[in-house]
Simulated assay, not measured.
Amino acid sequence: MTEFAGIRWREREVCIEYVRIAPGRTDAPLVVFLHEGLGSVAMWKDFPQQLCDAGGFRGLVFSRPAYGRSTPRDEDERWDIDFMHRQAYEVLPAFFEAIGLHEKPWLFGHSDGGSIALLYAARFPDKVAGIVVVAPHIFVEDVTVANIEEARTAYETTDLPQRLGKYHDSADSAFWGWNRIWLHPPFRQWNIEAELAGIRCPVLAIQGIDDEYGTLEQIRGIARRAPQTQRVELADCGHSPHRDQPEQAIVSAVTFIDQNRSPKP
Rank of each mutant, 00 (worst) to 15 (best):
L118N: 06
P93E: 13
G100M: 08
F124H: 08
Q87F: 10
L101I: 11
P125A: 12
A117R: 04
A151L: 13
A98L: 07
L119C: 08
W106K: 03
A151M: 15
F96P: 01
E141V: 06
L101E: 11
Y89G: 09
Q87H: 11
L107T: 08
R123I: 06
V134F: 00
E141P: 07
T153D: 15
I148S: 05
L92S: 02
P93M: 05
Y155P: 10
F139M: 07
D142Q: 10
E77Q: 05
A98K: 08
T158P: 12
A129R: 02
R73E: 07
D80H: 02
A94L: 15
A146H: 15
A94M: 06
K127M: 07
T71E: 13
P161R: 10
F95W: 12
A154D: 13
L118C: 00
R73P: 01
T157C: 06
Q162R: 08
E75G: 05
F124W: 12
D159Y: 04
H102N: 15
F139V: 12
R123H: 13
M84P: 04
T158M: 05
R69L: 11
E103K: 08
A151E: 15
R78A: 15
A154M: 14
P136D: 11
A117I: 02
V91C: 13
V145D: 13
D74M: 13
R86W: 04
F96Q: 02
R73N: 11
H85K: 01
D142C: 12
T144I: 12
V91W: 06
W79Q: 04
R78L: 05
L101Q: 06
P93F: 11
W79T: 09
G109E: 03
P72G: 13
D142E: 11
N147Y: 04
F108K: 00
H102G: 10
W79H: 14
F96N: 02
D159H: 08
P105E: 07
F95C: 14
E97W: 05
G113W: 04
R69V: 14
L107H: 03
E149F: 10
F83S: 06
G130F: 09
E149S: 14
K127C: 04
D112L: 04
P105T: 13
E97G: 14
E156V: 04
